Simulated scan of single mutants.
Amino acid sequence: MTVAYWTVAGLLAAFYLYAGALKVIRSPDQLRPMMAWVDRVPLPAVRALGTVEVLGAVGLILPPATGIAPWSALAAAVGFVLLQIGAVAVHLTGEDRQVGLNVGLLTAAAATVWLATGQL
């Protein structure tokens, strides 16, 4: 179960670290080709979302690795489940309606929640 957690959580953390960093540092014009919803959300909210994603990625990896507050990895995984539920809603209410990636991330986050419960 430990190998499974580290595999799924590591991939999820890598994705959110990358995506979150892009949301924090790139302009809306640079984000638009990858994220059609960026024009419907205020830039401070996009930046805040990116910050949450980066912190969540750290939360999936650092606590279990150090043994300090390992329950926070579970909290980060639950946060990503909630984040993707919101992302699906944003995509479905917009014009792009591309939710395949979000469903995959939701599934990976749910698996991480399940695997993290075995780590506590």
Results as ranks from 00 to 15, higher is better:
Leu115Gly: 01
Ala73Leu: 02
Leu62His: 10
Thr2Gly: 15
Ile25Arg: 15
Arg26Gly: 10
Ser27Tyr: 00
Pro28Asn: 14
Arg47Trp: 02
Leu101Pro: 11
Pro64Val: 02
Leu83Val: 05
Thr112Glu: 02
Pro28Ser: 11
Trp37Lys: 07
Leu60Trp: 09
Ile85Tyr: 04
Met34Pro: 00
Gln119Pro: 01
Leu105Trp: 02
Leu62Met: 14
Val52Asp: 06
Val88Arg: 02
Gly100Glu: 13
Ile85Met: 14
Ser27Arg: 01
Asp29Arg: 12
Gly104His: 08
Ala48Val: 12
Arg97Ala: 08
Leu31Arg: 01
Ala57Asn: 09
Thr117Trp: 09
Thr7Phe: 13
Leu92Ala: 06
Gly86His: 02
Asp29Val: 10
Ala9Ile: 02
Val99Gly: 04
Arg47Ile: 07
Gly20His: 03
Ala13Ile: 07
Thr112Arg: 05
Leu101Asp: 09
Thr93Asp: 10
Ala111Ile: 14
Val38Ser: 00
Leu83Asn: 10
Leu49Ser: 15
Gly94Val: 00
Leu12Ile: 12
Pro70Gly: 04
Ala14Met: 12
Gly79Asn: 04
Ala73Gly: 07
Val41Cys: 03
Val90Lys: 00
Thr112Ser: 07
Leu101Lys: 13
Leu49Gln: 14
Phe80Ile: 01
Lys23Ser: 11
Glu53Val: 06
Asp96Thr: 14
Leu22His: 13
Tyr5Pro: 05
Phe80Arg: 07
